[in-house]
Simulated scan of single mutants.
Amino acid sequence: MRRFYQYVCAAEMHIAKWALAVLTVLVIAAAVMRSIGMPIVWAIDAATFLFAWCVFLGGDIAMRNDRLVCIDVLTCRLPKKYQHYLKIINYSIIVVFLASLIAHGVKLAYTTRLRTFQGIPDVSYTWVTIAVPLGCLLMLITAILKIRNLIQNGYENMPDGECGCPKELM
Results as ranks from 00 to 15, higher is better:
Phe4Ser: 11
Pro121Ser: 09
Arg115Ser: 13
His14Ser: 13
Gly119Met: 03
Ser92Gln: 03
Gly154Arg: 02
Thr24Arg: 02
Ala11Gly: 13
Ala131Asn: 04
Leu169Pro: 02
Leu50Thr: 08
Cys76Met: 00
Gln118Asn: 11
Pro121Gln: 06
Cys54Asp: 08
Pro133Leu: 01
Val73Asn: 07
Met170Lys: 10
Ala109Lys: 01
Cys163Tyr: 09
Lys167Gly: 01
Ala19Pro: 06
Tyr85Ser: 08
Met13Arg: 11
Ile44Phe: 11
Leu98Arg: 01
Asp45Ile: 09
Val22Leu: 15
Phe56Arg: 10
Lys17Val: 06
Ile44Gln: 13
Val25Glu: 12
His104Asp: 03
Arg34Tyr: 09
His84Cys: 05
Ile36Tyr: 14
Leu78Tyr: 04
Arg2Leu: 07
Val73Ala: 08
Ile147Thr: 00
Ile71Ala: 11
Leu68His: 15
Thr24Gly: 12
Ile102Thr: 03
Leu150Gln: 10
Cys163Ile: 05
Lys167Arg: 09
His84Thr: 03
Cys54Ala: 09
Leu23Val: 05
Cys9Leu: 05
Cys136Ser: 15
Leu145Cys: 02
Glu168Val: 06
Ile36Asp: 10
Lys81His: 13
Gln152Phe: 07
Pro121Leu: 00
His14Asn: 12
Phe4Arg: 06
Leu20Cys: 11
Val27Thr: 14
Asn149Ile: 00
Ile120Gln: 07
Val22Cys: 12
Pro166Arg: 12
Val95Asn: 08
Leu140Lys: 10
Val27Lys: 09
Leu169Gln: 13
Asp160His: 02
Ile71Val: 08
Phe4His: 08
Ser35Asn: 13
Tyr155Ser: 15
Asp160Met: 01
Val106Asp: 09
Gly59Ser: 14
Val32Ala: 14
Val106Gly: 07
Ala47Gly: 15
Asn65Trp: 01
Gly135Tyr: 00
Leu26His: 04
Ile88Phe: 04
Val25Ala: 15
Asn153Ser: 11
Arg67Pro: 03
Phe49Ile: 06
Phe117Lys: 07
Ile120Gly: 07
Thr48Gly: 15
Gly105Pro: 07
Lys87Glu: 15
Gly164Met: 07
Val106Arg: 09
Pro159Tyr: 00
Tyr85Gln: 06
